[in-house]
Design a protein around this nucleic acid. Structure first.
Lengths: 179, 179
DNA sequence: TAGCGTGATGTTACCAAGTCACATCACCAC
DNA sequence: GTGGTGATGTGACTTGGTAACATCACGCTA
């Protein structure tokens, strides 16, 4: 993964071949690469099933007294907590690489949708009505991604959790302005 | 496009080759296919730039007195109006094909995000604050896609516009339940 | 210590997506 | 009929992705 990110950052995603990535990652070959990642894009997104589990667990473990938005807030909190400061630099590189490739943005959109889906399903499990669940999940995901983007550029010393809480609050406020 | 949808429906997306599509579409070849569509997936989504323009124009043309949600409602209305009854059958086939291919769902997620982006930009243009614009655009897009899915299965005689209006209203109600 | 299974890797060959340079052909205008 | 233009075909190429088979290192056990 490190080899891939570095090569993508140096030469661009399209100009980098899977063989090059494998080669840099310790003289390996294409075949080995595809044994670890289902395709070339996935090398940048591997491990995100974990994110789905994290938000599901957070929502599943929220107290019965919690409102849907409180459940989502705790999910966003737990997810944001995964990204400790030492991952910030890599996140910044990643963001830049993705911003330059339509193919990678497509995968990103898919992963984002999967996160919304995971939150929605977990909320439904908690007997939140479908549409309310969808909107709450969307709001949480939007807060997380917005916060992630600002955190990754690193011009602000606050942690991702702090960024996420602020983003969540702002989105909530914006929602109440929507009549 | 018709050749592609039919072949995908018959054999599945993965099992269909671009050469086959071109061949069925009047004895053409791969090269010609790629002159019309940037890649294999795009054959199912071509023409969606138009959707972006439609929602932008609707929002841009809304009266100054309109609220953000009213602007979005008119955008959804105009977009839904594009899908006349004669397109319903094709839409149903399309839905099924997409549901069976991860690759196509990825492209769909991307196009959906583009639609949200187009609405957001148009709302910003109308001086709607960023976060309010994002949420309104998301709500409108969600209403449209939900309605589209129900319209395409064809078990309900109502037009897409009617479906969309109902979906929009329901989402609005769900939003106000979100504290 | 010999041998055996297992997991990670390499090799080779293959298919299909996507690109490119160059050729062809039909059609329209002058 | 001459020339330009747009759509198409051809052939060669790169690369992502798959599959079958071989290799090698390691640890376990007889």
């Amino acid at each position: 993964m490190r080899a891939a990110i570095d090569l993508f950052a140096e030469q661009g995603y399209d100009a980098t071949t899977v063989n090059e990535i494998a080669e840099r990652a310790g003289g390996l070959t294409k075949t080995t690469f595809f044994r670890h990642f289902s395709d070339k894009r996935e090398v940048l997104y591997a491990g995100q099933e974990l994110h789905g589990r994290i938000v599901s667990d957070a929502i599943g473990g929220a107290p019965d007294s919690a409102t849907p938005l409180q459940m989502v807030a705790s999910a966003v909190d737990e997810l944001a907590a995964v990204f400790t400061e030492d991952r910030r630099e890599m996140a910044g590189k990643l963001r830049k690489v993705i911003a330059e490739s339509a193919e990678l943005q497509e995968r990103a959109a898919f992963k984002r949708a999967a996160l919304v889906g995971a939150m929605t399903a977990a909320l439904r499990e908690r007997r939140v009505p479908e549409l309310v669940a969808e909107l709450a999940a969307e709001l949480g995901t939007r807060a997380f991604y917005g916060a992630f983007g600002r955190w990754a550029v690193a011009e602000d010393p606050r942690t991702l959790v702090e960024h996420a809480r602020q983003a969540f609050g702002e989105l909530r406020a914006a929602m109440s302005e929507l009549e």
